[in-house]
């Protein structure tokens, strides 16, 4: 039988899923709700200066890339399965599109972070 290359995508999926499960709710709460509303956190928490400094630090680069890329790979894998579950049987096309987008997102994020 042909060995599946699924482990590559499954590992990225798993890592992204775990990261999202552990800290996803907190991130959404901070960036999408609390900070925009100006509650719970200082008003300048996500100010340009703060975020630029964060994105220029190595730890910041790693964290941002991890969250953006792994979330994308996680989602890409599940969405590919979801399409299969809904009866889209063009397996190769679906995979190329889903994983292609995740790959593109990863490259853009990495490129952007390196440029900062």
């Amino acid at each position: 039988m042909k060995r599946s290359n699924e482990p590559i995508f499954w590992s990225l999926f798993g890592a992204g899923g775990m990261l999202a499960a552990l800290i996803g709710p907190a991130l959404v709460l901070i960036t999408g709700i609390a900070v925009p509303l100006g509650i719970l956190f200082p008003a300048d928490t996500m100010s340009y200066a703060h975020m630029l400094a964060f994105a220029q630090s190595w730890i910041g680069k790693i964290l941002l890339l991890a969250v953006i890329a792994l979330f994308m790979w996680h989602a890409a894998h599940r969405i590919a399965i979801l399409l299969h579950d809904f009866g889209v049987h063009a397996v190769t096309v679906v995979k190329v599109v889903c994983y292609g987008l995740a790959f593109a997102g990863t490259v853009i994020a990495a490129w952007t972070l390196l440029g900062l």
Binding site: G16, A20, G24, L27, V28, T31, G32, L64, V67, I68, F71, M72, H74, A75, A76, H77, R78, I79, L82, G105, I108, A109
Partner: peptide
């Protein structure tokens, strides 16, 4: 997963 993707795009 669709929402996780959407959030990743917002961040990106």
């Amino acid at each position: 997963a669709v929402f996780v993707a959407a959030y990743a795009v917002v961040l990106l």
